[in-house]
């Protein structure tokens, strides 16, 4: 019997070889083993699907009011989830609302994430007085309740989809700045950064070629978790009458409009409420899984 010894040029340990291709495979198999991650993933897929193709799936026009059919309970006249006080189909409005939620969640994360990351990098990498000034601004802003701040900004710049995204981003960038700054502070003390200083790499290149690629994972994780926060915040702001304005169907203002009928027609607020809850839960599940998989050191933080 012969034992084949695999050739390992000069190595005392077998080399594991997960290339870029198998990293995706690794993520997928990890996802298959996590029921929370999978649940979140499916919810996110469903949400994306609804927001992309909702207008063809929705059984009725979400804006079409028909007073003769107002406040129909679920499962009547083809209205699966019933109709609201103006006779509009709740299911169709919820599907249209999914699109608004996705747009707001993604756009806000893009804007807040980009701005916050830039501030965090400048603060953490260059330090000095700029760091002090920027971080005090962050401190001041963090001492305001998030929703209150968003409402105030909304009241100043006005309502509507664009403005709610802007005000959520203005309220939300500080989290990114904080997290990115602390990551940069930790990274710049790493030995491989010292090594590139010793090699003679210019400071700007160290930032873009060594620090930035290593920030990718924490930023992805934080973004996924922040999307849920922004979706809930948008719902809260819309519920309070700011943000997305009627008759546009956002989940938040569906709740707001339906609250007067809470005792007579429960379906008006129950379904949008459940949708918000499931979405937030799904995105959070997915974000938690992503964090545990990509960054085991952060587990439980």
């Amino acid at each position: 019997m012969t034992i084949e010894i695999p050739e390992q040029p000069g190595s005392s340990r077998p080399a594991v070889t997960p290339g870029k291709q198998s990293k995706l495979a690794f993520l997928w198999s990890s996802l298959l083993h996590s029921w929370t991650g999978m649940t979140g993933f499916i919810i996110i897929l469903l949400l994306l699907f609804l927001s992309l193709f909702g207008q063809w799936i929705a059984p009725f026009d979400p804006m079409h009011a028909e007073f003769s059919k107002k406040l129909l309970p679920p499962m009547t006249d083809g209205h699966l989830l019933g109709t609201d006080q103006l006779g509009r189909d709740i299911l169709s409005r919820m599907i249209a609302g999914a699109r608004i939620s996705v747009i707001i969640g993604v756009m806000t994360v893009l804007i807040a994430g980009t701005f916050g990351t830039v501030v965090g990098i400048v603060s953490g990498y260059f330090r000095g007085w700029l760091d002090v000034v920027l971080m005090r601004i962050v401190d001041v802003q963090l001492s305001f309740p998030f929703i209150l701040l968003v409402l105030v900004i909304n009241a100043i710049i006005g309502t509507g989809l664009k403005n709610i995204i802007l005000s959520l981003a203005i309220g939300g960038w500080v989290i990114f700045a904080r997290v990115v700054r602390s990551e940069v502070l930790a990274l710049r003390e790493k030995e491989f950064i010292t090594a590139s200083v010793a090699t003679g790499v210019p400071r700007i290149q160290i930032l873009f070629k060594h620090i930035l690629p290593n920030l990718f994972t924490p930023i992805i994780i934080l973004s996924s978790l922040q999307i849920a926060t922004y979706i809930i915040a948008e719902a809260s702001v819309s519920f309070l009458g700011f943000g997305v304005q009627p008759p546009n169907p956002a989940w938040g203002n569906m709740l707001s409009e339906g609250k007067d009928y809470i005792f007579s027609s429960w379906w008006l607020i129950t379904f949008p409420g459940v949708a918000i809850m499931i979405t937030a839960l799904g995105v959070n599940f997915f974000g938690d899984w992503l964090r545990d998989t990509l960054d085991p050191e952060l587990k439980g933080e």
Partner: peptide, 22 residues
Amino acid sequence: RLLRSRMQMVFQDPYASLNPKK
């Protein structure tokens, strides 16, 4: 920085001194 091309360093911990993303 330019002079560093003439003086280099080998670090103690080979696990920490190479950028994992490169």
